[in-house]
């Protein structure tokens, strides 16, 4: 099975499209990771809230549209499959101009999450401090914790950056089973 982690960034939604994409590198990484995720089978979404779910659904629809003609039909059936799209990001308090202003605890927290994602250390995701994550406006930390029992055979970090004071990751995991 495959797991992809992408951040639930509303700027990725087509309804918020600009003439110049404010997140071109993030979008490119998300699109190609999701295309990889659904290369052979559909995927289900694990998200912290409705907004994150909608963003995941649109990314999946785009990924499936690249693979099959009728994306909407395929999404209906994704629950049956093993692949997972996790909507999560790190702290949104990484600079004075960040959405949540600066909180110095962001850096330690994000480093811990990032190291686990990059190494495919699923168990470490189960031990994250969800309360601290909430204080740092991190999204989907609970969703990441649902991956804790997986055995990761390959982990690739496609994108890790904080262009707007929010830590974004695009990660691909290949897992046993």
């Amino acid at each position: 099975m495959r797991v992809v982690v992408v951040p639930p960034v509303p700027a990725l939604l087509s309804r918020y499209a600009s003439l110049t994409d404010p997140v071109p590198e993030l979008r490119a990484a998300c699109v190609s990771a999701v295309a990889w995720l659904v290369e052979h089978d559909d995927a289900r979404i694990v998200a912290a809230d409705d907004q994150a779910r909608r963003i995941g659904e649109e990314l999946l629809a785009q990924g499936l549209a690249g693979r099959v003609a009728s994306a909407s039909e395929r999404i209906e059936t994704r629950i049956e499959t093993g692949n997972i799209l996790v909507m999560a990001n790190g702290s949104a308090r990484r600079s004075e101009k960040a959405p949540g202003h600066l909180d110095e605890r962001s850096f330690g927290f994000d480093s811990e999450v990032e190291a686990a994602l990059a190494a495919g250390d699923a168990a470490a995701l189960g031990g994250l401090d969800a309360r601290l994550g909430a204080e740092l406006l991190a999204s989907g930390i609970g969703a990441l914790a649902t991956l804790a029992d997986l055995t990761v055979t390959r982990a690739v970090m496609d994108y890790a950056d904080d262009p707007f004071g929010v830590r974004y990751w695009v990660v691909r995991w290949e897992c046993a089973s």
């Binding site: 960034v9 509303p10 700027a11 918020y16 499209a17 600009s18 003439l19 110049t20 994409d21 404010p22 997140v23 949104a92 959405p99 262009p163 707007f164 004071g165 929010v166």
Partner: peptide
């Protein structure tokens, strides 16, 4: 009839 040039405020 036209998108904004580049909108990220509140959307990051």
């Amino acid at each position: 009839r036209r998108p904004p040039a580049r909108a990220i405020r509140g959307l990051a």
